[in-house]
Computed example of a mutant assay.
Amino acid sequence: MMVHVIPSGLYAIKDETHISVPQASSYPSLSREDMQRLNYLRNPENPSILEVSIDGYISPYAINYYTRVLELATRAQDVKGILMEIKTAGGMVDQLVAFADFLYKYPKPIVTHTSYCCSAGYWIASQTNEIHAEPQSSTEIGSIGTIYIHYDQSGMYEKQGTKVHVFRSEGSTRKAVPNSFEPLDKESADRFQARVNAANVEFKSYVRRGRGMRIKSDAVWNGDTFDSDASVAVGLADRKGTYAQALERVIKLSDK
């Protein structure tokens, strides 16, 4: 059984800071090279495990890309299973509900291997069959929670002696509210809080669906992260395992 790697190509990574830069302009369609690689898998004498690499910031463009790759893999009879290699701090929640449902119902086994799987990345991983945590001290898994950051710079402008004048058309009292130039009003603050609360309810419900009784501690819900040993102990991961061991596992599941 052979392994074919289809890198996402979605992000340019700055090695020094690990900051990811979305390459949004190149999507939503798959490249010709991606199509050729996937079509190559359509060979009855070459049963394969497809690796999907999720590396960097997760955006709606990334979700569209991964969905298309996995949809093609569903129709490729010679793709027996998926090895999902995840290394991400997370990203946007946009389209994660639909993608999580897609993964949860996916007809072929998916095993996740990760050394760094947080927030939106864990939302995705929790919907796969198994999660293998890289057995090293730097492994970090979890960060179940949602956050939104608003910059209120109105005080800074006031100290600088800068006056910002915002002109809105009559009746458009909520146009561009909130913004960083005007003080954050209570209505906007309440909306932000309600949105992050609602997103977190979704996040937790999907993790509970995907992981079920494997979650062994309420500590996973406070937004903390866990190393490889602790992630297995609390149920965020199924076992410690290297890339090779995760590959062996998905091959075994695909042969059932």
Rank of each mutant, 00 (worst) to 15 (best):
W123H: 08
K204S: 08
V207E: 06
I251Y: 00
E51T: 09
K80F: 06
M35T: 15
I58Q: 04
E71C: 01
Q245N: 02
K80N: 10
V234C: 11
R37E: 10
N179V: 06
D55V: 08
I6K: 06
L83D: 07
M213D: 11
D55I: 06
L83G: 04
E16R: 05
F181E: 09
A176D: 15
L72Q: 15
R174N: 14
D190N: 11
K256R: 09
Y66N: 07
R174C: 04
Y66I: 09
K204I: 11
I49D: 03
E45F: 06
N197V: 11
K175P: 02
E130H: 01
E158A: 08
C117N: 03
E134M: 05
V5G: 02
A176F: 15
A244L: 00
S205A: 09
A198N: 14
I215Q: 08
V177N: 12
E158Q: 11
V166L: 15
P183D: 00
V166R: 11
S217I: 08
I147C: 13
K186R: 13
K252H: 07
V5D: 02
T17S: 15
S25L: 09
N129I: 00
I58L: 06
R195E: 14
Q160K: 10
Y243R: 09
D227C: 07
G90Q: 01
Q36N: 14
L236D: 04
I82Y: 03
Y148M: 11
Y151F: 05
I82N: 04
K80M: 10
R249N: 08
G56I: 01
T112I: 10
L103N: 08
T67E: 14
V3N: 04
S59W: 09
C117H: 00
T139D: 00
S31E: 13
S231D: 08
G90T: 02
Y27M: 10
R195I: 15
E130T: 00
G9E: 07
K256G: 07
F181A: 08
I141F: 00
V177A: 12
E33V: 15
N64M: 11
Y66F: 15
V207G: 01
A73W: 10
E85R: 08
Q95P: 02
A199R: 10
D229E: 14
V111Q: 07
V93L: 01
G91D: 01
P22V: 01
